[in-house]
Simulated scan of single mutants.
Amino acid sequence: MVEQITYGVKIQVKTNFEGTFYKDHKMLFAFGYQITIKNQSKNSVQLNARHWIIKDALNNTETVSGEGVIGKKPVLLPGESHTYNSGCLLTSPIGSMKGYYQMINFTTNEVFKVEIPNFKLSAPYVLN
């Protein structure tokens, strides 16, 4: 598990390899990840947007931005957490993801970024 705290918001990431499949004569590697966002600050916050940088071992980079996470913009009171599952496809058995969430602090109306730490994606058979 990888974790990081930014402005009192803790991000924890767990990953898993889901398998391989062929699409358009290309082998793709499917990875799942579970993210828990925990508000350890004294203020209520809301996640409004996400920004991801996804890389694979073939030096391909994909940038993904959008509103919320899996169709939600969770509001977290102090001490609350939100967990969700998602995934990505890579063209190699090794890669990484990192990014940030754009959030708003309801006490100060400040918009701020919470870093999502860099985490590795790897098929279990490629690493010892």
Results as ranks from 00 to 15, higher is better:
residue 68 G to E: 01
residue 58 L to Q: 13
residue 2 V to P: 00
residue 52 W to N: 01
residue 9 V to R: 00
residue 105 N to S: 11
residue 5 I to G: 01
residue 78 P to V: 14
residue 49 A to P: 02
residue 77 L to V: 09
residue 21 F to A: 07
residue 50 R to P: 01
residue 116 I to P: 04
residue 34 Q to C: 04
residue 122 S to Y: 15
residue 97 M to L: 02
residue 80 E to I: 07
residue 127 L to G: 03
residue 62 E to L: 12
residue 89 L to A: 10
residue 30 A to N: 11
residue 57 A to R: 07
residue 38 K to R: 12
residue 74 P to T: 11
residue 12 Q to R: 10
residue 73 K to W: 07
residue 109 N to V: 11
residue 126 V to R: 01
residue 103 M to K: 08
residue 90 L to W: 02
residue 51 H to V: 05
residue 122 S to G: 06
residue 49 A to F: 03
residue 44 S to A: 11
residue 107 T to Y: 12
residue 125 Y to R: 05
residue 24 D to A: 08
residue 123 A to P: 14
residue 41 S to Q: 08
residue 16 N to S: 07
residue 51 H to M: 06
residue 99 G to I: 06
residue 67 E to D: 04
residue 52 W to K: 06
residue 4 Q to V: 08
residue 98 K to Y: 06
residue 76 L to H: 04
residue 118 N to S: 09
residue 117 P to Y: 09
residue 93 P to N: 01
residue 98 K to T: 11
residue 39 N to I: 05
residue 64 V to G: 02
residue 29 F to I: 09
residue 122 S to W: 12
residue 48 N to D: 06
residue 5 I to A: 01
residue 2 V to M: 08
residue 95 G to D: 01
residue 64 V to H: 05
residue 79 G to R: 05
residue 78 P to T: 15
residue 40 Q to M: 03
residue 29 F to E: 03
residue 103 M to N: 01
residue 25 H to L: 14
residue 112 F to V: 09
residue 108 T to A: 13
residue 3 E to H: 09
residue 15 T to L: 02
residue 112 F to T: 13
residue 102 Q to L: 09
residue 1 M to I: 13
residue 107 T to Q: 12
residue 40 Q to Y: 06
residue 57 A to F: 15
residue 110 E to T: 15
residue 91 T to D: 04
residue 24 D to V: 12
residue 33 Y to M: 09
residue 99 G to Q: 00
residue 115 E to R: 12
residue 84 Y to L: 07
residue 111 V to K: 15
residue 127 L to R: 10
residue 118 N to Q: 11
residue 119 F to I: 11
residue 21 F to M: 07
residue 50 R to G: 06
residue 101 Y to S: 04
residue 51 H to C: 07
residue 19 G to D: 08
residue 115 E to S: 15
residue 106 F to A: 03
residue 5 I to C: 04
residue 42 K to V: 08
residue 125 Y to N: 10
residue 17 F to Y: 10
residue 7 Y to V: 02
residue 45 V to K: 02
residue 82 H to C: 04
residue 74 P to R: 07
residue 17 F to G: 00
residue 24 D to T: 10
residue 77 L to R: 14
residue 72 K to C: 05
residue 3 E to I: 10
residue 21 F to E: 04
residue 94 I to S: 00
residue 35 I to T: 07
residue 5 I to T: 11
residue 82 H to L: 10
residue 41 S to R: 03
